[in-house]
Each structure stands twice: as C-alpha cells, then as structure tokens.
Design a protein around this nucleic acid. Structure first.
Lengths: 116, 116
DNA sequence: CCACCTCCTTGACGTATGTCAAAGACGTCG
DNA sequence: CGACGTCTTTGACATACGTCAAGGAGGTGG
C-alpha cells in the first residue's frame, strides 16, 4: 500500500454524508476506511462483540476467550481504541474496556445503503 | 497475519446474529471480517459509493475518477465482487458494474449495535 | 483476418499487518 | 521495600495487501 494512510484522530464518531447519498470524497473515504480497517479482523470483531454484550471486561478475561496472547489482545484493543470504537480505563490492577456504541453506530449509519 | 483467513464463498449476503446480540463465534467473525476487509480501503469505498449513486458504471469511467490505473481499479472491483458487494456483466466491449445493495445492507445490519 | 479497443491477469516491489516472546511500566499486597 | 500480577511496548518474523507495468483475453470494426 504505497499510498500510506495518514494518521488521523479517529476517536470521534465518523461524521459525513452516507456512502450512498453522493460520491465520496477522498478525505471521507480515508476517514471511514481507517475505522473499517480497525474492525476488519476476526479477533477484533470478536473482542468488539464481547464488549458489546457485557458492560465492562478486563484484558485478562478477554485473552483466553479469543485464544490469543495477552500481548496480542492488547495490540488489538489499542487499534480499536485508536479507532474510537472502544475505551479503556485503569482501575486498580486491571484495565476495564467498554464499547463505544455511538461510534460504531455512526460508522454503520454512514455505510447504510438504505439510509437516505 | 499468520492465521491466514480461509477462502470462503462470500458472494452471498452475510447472515448471522448481530454483533451486539451475543458473543460472536470464530466462524461468524471470519465471515464478517472478510467482507469488511473488502470495504476497508479508501479506493474501494469510493468505488462502492460511485456505484451506489449511479446505476451502472463501466471500468473505463471509474479509473479516472478515483485516480488509479485501470489495472488497479480492476483489482479492487475483483475484491468487491468476491465479497459479493458488487456484480459486473460484460455487454459489448464494456463491463458494467452494479452495487449489490442487499449485501451491503446485510453487512450493516450485522454490525448495527442498535439493531436488536 | 487484422488492427484496435476495453478489460483482466500476472509478476514484482515496497509497505502494512497479525502474531508471539521478551522486556518494560504500573499497581498491589505482604 | 520487594515480590508478584496485570497490562503495554518493543523487536522480530512471516504473510497479506495496494500499486503499477507488461502482457493476455475477449469483443468490435474495417
């Protein structure tokens, strides 16, 4: 991918015209693609799903469920956090993660071909 | 990515429980991830957007719009077609592409955190 | 049949990504 | 303070991916 994607602040919910409403600009496409990339991995999808179905989960619980090293899970959670899809907070000895439903919701609305 | 994603028939709309309804299985995650990967690229998002806003477009028209070689556009369209998000048909000297709205719609529904 | 157009496939190149082991940072509890 | 637990970072490795140039496959028109 010679055309390296720029580093953007993707922690805010994506906000632009729906993909089906009008031809996407290059900037909007990059914005959405960065967030989609964060989601386009089986491990991260499962982590996201776990976070969506439970209120708060700590890394130590997640690693065994997805069958990956804690280091790898941490890496994936970092990607999700940088994409604004997840947020984590250290409380005591554990880091507790939460899904940011509004960010995922915004992403979904942008992609929805039936919306608008 | 040592864990190579399997080659699946992804031309049918994805169909499984929404990501927020219950913890995703590994198989479901792979199904969704393969389709998301196909979409998680600025060039393919723009192509998809173009196809969604016009009924039918041929490759020769798409290449200049996204600013890529025809070979590259063809590659991207192939990815989208293998993911079932697009379909193309040769008519005369041109290949005409159409977006498969129902496939994108199904993908979006699976990801929607507010659905169900 | 031959020149030509449009599109796809192949090969090659550099970059990005997923994974883990090892080491570091941060916090807790004797 | 010091041993331990939990999480993140770093380094290394193999694989996947985006891009283009070059060549091939399919269709059209003289």
């Amino acid at each position: 991918m010679p055309k390296a994607l720029p580093v953007l602040d993707t922690t805010a919910p994506v906000c632009c015209a729906p993909v089906a409403a009008a031809a996407m600009t290059e900037e909007a496409a990059v914005e959405v693609a960065l967030r989609l990339k964060a989601l386009a991995d089986p491990a991260r999808l499962r982590l996201m799903s776990l976070l969506l179905t439970r209120d708060e989960v700590c890394t130590c619980d997640l690693a065994p469920v997805v069958g990956l090293t804690e280091a790898t899970v941490s890496h994936h959670l970092g990607q999700l956090r940088r994409a604004g899809l997840v947020e984590g907070e250290r409380r005591g000895m554990n880091v507790w993660y939460r899904a940011r439903r509004e960010s995922l919701g915004a992403l979904v609305r942008v992609l929805d071909p039936d919306c608008c």
